[in-house]
């Protein structure tokens, strides 16, 4: 029983403490321990809780980001180079039938690069990330 009172009269005419467990120091001590633990947990958590946006400071995450960025850059350079070469070839080989369609597939690492040539269309490049 958390009530320190046994009869309504005792409670309704109380002059003094009327709170729960007023007659049981054991329970209040136990709740004090819980309260202190919560308080220290709060302080500890305020140091440990990180929002997701801070995860980029993780060396492993940074490494992946740098590597991905480098691969993306290398891929862009490669695509722009091959596109220029193909455009040059197309311009200088007018005897080639404009109706012919050619599909060339190259695989570099985990990246598959596909080119399509259309009769009246400029070269299109599609990059499929297979990673």
């Amino acid at each position: 029983m958390s009530s320190p009172f046994k009869t309504p009269q005792e409670f309704l005419e109380v002059k003094g403490p009327l709170y729960t467990f007023a007659n049981s120091s054991f329970w209040l001590t136990l709740f004090l321990v819980f309260t202190v633990l919560i308080f220290f947990w709060f302080i500890y958590a305020s140091y440990k809780i990180k929002s997701k946006s801070n995860s980029d400071s993780d060396p492993a995450v940074m490494s992946v980001l740098i590597l991905t960025g480098f691969l993306s850059l290398a891929q862009s350079v490669y695509i722009s180079g091959t596109t220029a070469i193909e455009a040059y070839l197309q311009k200088n080989k007018s005897q080639v039938s404009m109706q012919r369609k050619t599909r060339t597939t190259k695989v570099a690492g985990k990246t598959k690069i596909t080119r399509r040539y259309g009769a009246r269309r400029s070269p299109q490049t599609r990059v499929v990330d297979r990673g």
Binding site: M1, S2, S3, F5, K6, T7, P8, Q9, E10, F11, L12, T20
Partner: peptide, 16 residues
Amino acid sequence: GFFAYGYPQAEGIPVI
């Protein structure tokens, strides 16, 4: 019902 269990409220009224 648990943390204030047993509080009398008035004559003829059940305790919490």
